[in-house]
Write a protein that binds this DNA or RNA. Sequence first.
DNA 1: TTCCTGATTAGGAATTATTCTTAATTAGGA
DNA 2: TCCTAATTAAGAATAATTCCTAATCAGGAA
Lengths: 148, 148
Amino acid sequence: MTSQDNELDKIRKLCDQAGMKLTPQRLEIFKELLSHEDHPSAELIFTKLRERLPTISLDTVYRTLASFDELGIIKKLNISNARTLFDTNIEQHHHFICTKCKRVEDIHWPDFDKANLPESVSALGSIQTRHLELHGICNQCLNKKNKG
Amino acid sequence: MTSQDNELDKIRKLCDQAGMKLTPQRLEIFKELLSHEDHPSAELIFTKLRERLPTISLDTVYRTLASFDELGIIKKLNISNARTLFDTNIEQHHHFICTKCKRVEDIHWPDFDKANLPESVSALGSIQTRHLELHGICNQCLNKKNKG
DNA sequence: TTCCTGATTAGGAATTATTCTTAATTAGGA
DNA sequence: TCCTAATTAAGAATAATTCCTAATCAGGAA
């Protein structure tokens, strides 16, 4: 059994549990997501998908990504006020965002994930997720600058 | 000299340094911002302002808020993919976002601000700001739930 | 298997936030 | 006071996303 078969099993189960029909569109969107390690937009998924599924509509992509977000299969990212990005990696992690080129890179910092929040913070309510955004200039942009 | 006079001096200087004319519109937008402790949207500032400056345009509000963001007087927040919010508090801090009522509350966590980032993270580039988003359910919403 | 029904889809229209365009006005220096 | 580049108001334009509707379809029941 390949890793993809494994993933396809997962989506079947998740849809079933949620009372959602596993339509060919949903399956293809899911497969497309599997092939993205990064943070694609709905538009990008739509464009890629249209090559092999010419009749798919952008609306379906948006709807499906929203459903997948609710199921916890992917995660919506509101990083800039341009298009929404979708994180295909749902393991706990954070992001570095280059203010020049807008590149978004994953960050892992398990020690921070484990750290207790201050009393004053946990007193605000029940905290479910923590997401750190680091903003700065990536090495690629720094190098360009030095050369130019 | 009142605290507001002090602030007005600040905006005068900042505009001057940036070669920006201090127009009445900019001054009024700045004053309006001073009266918001929270995270107003451009639309809200516009609506409030229109009561005493009936001819101001939404475009001017957007342009001015963008300029103020560039000058570091306020900070754009991309928290949801609905409207952009503006943070009138530019001291280093973080946010708690209630997933139910969308309330945004400031968080202060100086120990975290001082903490060193892992080697693997600082190696990505030059990191300028860190912003933590905690998502969860605020006490108000938790109480409603328990009562309902 | 075939039929049925509610869920889902495609496609385009609508909506919403934000930015752009343009002609008119104005702040602030000469 | 005059001049000029910067700024503004107003509405048009843009862009991302969502809504609407009729048609299609997945999967359960017979």
